[in-house]
Design a protein around this nucleic acid. Structure first.
Lengths: 348, 348
DNA sequence: TGACACAATTGGAACGTTCCAATTAATTGC
DNA sequence: GCAATTAATTGGAACGTTCCAATTGTGTCA
């Protein structure tokens, strides 16, 4: 009982029909009579039939199984967990199942995971690439006609679809907001310099600084690991400067939280003594004290859009690369101090 | 090119051998000559061969594919993300691939997801069950000989392996610690009352309260959603009482963070004016300000142990249920105020 | 030289499903 | 009442792999 698998033939025998008819029932064909349908369904329930999708996909030449692969570079970062949840929503309702794996920024692990997914015949792949990923790494996938959507991190030169947030506009909006509150020395804190995302966010910062007529000062840019600990480190180095800033645009929310920690450790209250703006709008941003002013990226929404992009390609059959940048918006909460200062007021 | 899949037959033809030989190479058999092995390997590389595991598992009667399914009830909670990462570690190094899905506490989604996983022939399942899950839901799985490990939430009555943290000892240790710091009125905050985990943690709290000779007061138990917002809500209701407590054991870290938020909103500093202890030791616990005193559960470690438990069953072939409770330990940081108060001192 | 072991290779059957063409049964049109 | 149409069902081939039994070659021993 535990050993012998129940097959279509078994249930065909039990229901007194042929295996072909059972197959038709399985795929909900309108060709099969209502009476036989219920008879077959009953037999399936009774014998505890489990569909063998492996055999099915084997037969359907070239057709892929109903799996969507999702690969993220850091599952412990809640941004990516939320992204995956967003993907899962639309993927599930389209009758696919999600196959999520984590690479922990390891390029080797990423290769392994993607290879495994190919072996299992995924219909499409959504990936937030590990740090050292090259455009060529996805060549074999697209050559095999498997739709790929690159999310979060852009992969210059890759001929695949992508969805990234509008990093340039995000930091620019943050700078404009801080300037409108009267800040004249605004820092850019955190992040690893050798990534595309860092470059985009920094350029947005630079352009906006010029736009609002503030002089650009290289000293105000302090990079660090894109984590809470990195943020604490960055603000410590920043405040040790001769002419410290009064506000900071942070690489992401994790850095921003670390900056808040670091400020408190020096007896300064974020939002009152120093303005902090994050990037991502992770879930904790709104419940933290003070609530974090940040650039909302809506990771769930991004996941949903990535999934829609992928499903469109899967259904269309053609693998035409499409690049979308998700709009971002500034969410003003408490950490920027807007609630206590009226617009345009000069700082000491 | 994009359409025609490359099969063993293609590479057999290219290498001038039979498909059987190619198959032997594929599984690293010692029977094949070194020379032919390199010849075949070269042909595989050249033609871009992709192993079709579906066909393989189809042939190997009864044998499962190398997938481990992992199902969690809330991926946005970093505890579960960490758990999954822990599972992934040992699972990957054993040559399996992880198939992670999220149920968002929906019992229907859970059923769908698990059904999909069965169709894809998973070798085993690790699941943190959604709230209303019943023991009977896993009956078909174990009947089919698929090893199942239930993690985090116990499922009374299910004949499957399980790994849960020592909830009773955890809250008991927290109460003992707070009592040793001189606290006399200690609250238990947060969590949904109708869950097994809540019951275990509450019992630990009650037993320890009795053990250290404090009177039990029903009013001190305030339940709420097990989230940051729920914690803020619970502390607000608690402090509105006539005779408020001076310390709280929280259902989990998320609740504890919410309690800290709520205290600050009332002008009280956690760790100085009120002692807070969490449960789980999520990553943010050590970098938060104040750093959270909490019961360390080590979700990654738990994931690793769950995976080891599952692999053991898979390799043994027999499905013998084994129940392990993971040890917990109190991690004293700042939020309990231990750093500023010497042991035994009486509170106002 | 024949019998034997041993190493390396091979053709065919099987796994559980879907698809195609063919068959049967029931209904319609004239 | 017979051809034509429609509805429902069916047997067999095929998908890409693994396993088994059989085959080929090569060297060894009496």
């Amino acid at each position: 009982m535990a050993g012998g698998r129940v097959t279509v033939i078994d249930i065909a025998k039990a229901a007194g029909v042929s295996k072909s008819t059972v197959s038709l029932v399985l795929q909900g064909s309108p060709l099969v009579n209502e009476g036989t349908r219920v008879k077959v369904s009953a037999a399936m329930r009774e014998l505890g039939y489990v569909y063998n999708r492996g055999a099915a996909t084997l037969r359907q030449t070239g057709a892929k199984s109903k799996i969507i692969g999702v690969v993220v570079n850091d599952l412990t970062n809640s941004f990516f967990a939320e992204l995956a949840v967003g993907v899962d929503m639309v993927v599930q309702s389209a009758g696919f199942v999600q196959f999520l794996s984590n690479t922990s920024e390891s390029i080797d692990r990423q290769r392994e995971v993607i290879a495994s997914m190919r072996e299992h015949g995924i219909s499409g792949l959504i990936v937030s690439p590990a740090r050292a990923t090259e455009a060529a790494d996805f060549k074999p996938l697209v050559a095999a006609g498997i739709p790929v959507v690159v999310a979060v991190r852009s992969l210059p030169g890759a001929k695949v679809s992508s969805i990234v947030s509008d990093n340039h506009e995000g930091t620019a909006a943050a700078v404009r907001h801080l300037a409108s509150l009267g800040h004249r020395r605004i820092s850019f804190l955190g992040g690893f310099p050798n990534t595309a995302v860092f470059a985009e966010r920094l350029t947005g910062y630079r352009d906006a600084v010029a736009e609002v007529g503030l002089g650009f000062d290289d000293e105000l840019i302090v990079s660090s690991a894109p984590s809470r600990a990195g943020g604490a480190d960055a603000i410590a180095r920043t405040m040790a400067m001769g002419n410290p800033p009064t506000a900071a645009v942070c690489f992401n929310d994790a850095v921003a939280f670390g900056v808040c920690d670091g400020l408190r450790a020096r007896g300064m209250e974020p939002g009152r003594d120093f303005a902090v703006v994050g990037f991502d709008d992770v879930i904790e941003a709104q419940t933290a004290v003070p609530a974090l002013t940040t650039i909302s990226v809506d990771p769930q929404g991004m996941g949903r859009r990535a999934a829609q992009l992928l499903l469109k390609q899967i259904n269309a059959g053609k693998v035409e690369a499409e690049n979308v940048t998700a709009a971002v918006r500034l969410v003003v909460r408490e950490s920027c101090g807007a609630w206590q200062r009226k617009s345009g007021e000069e700082l000491a």
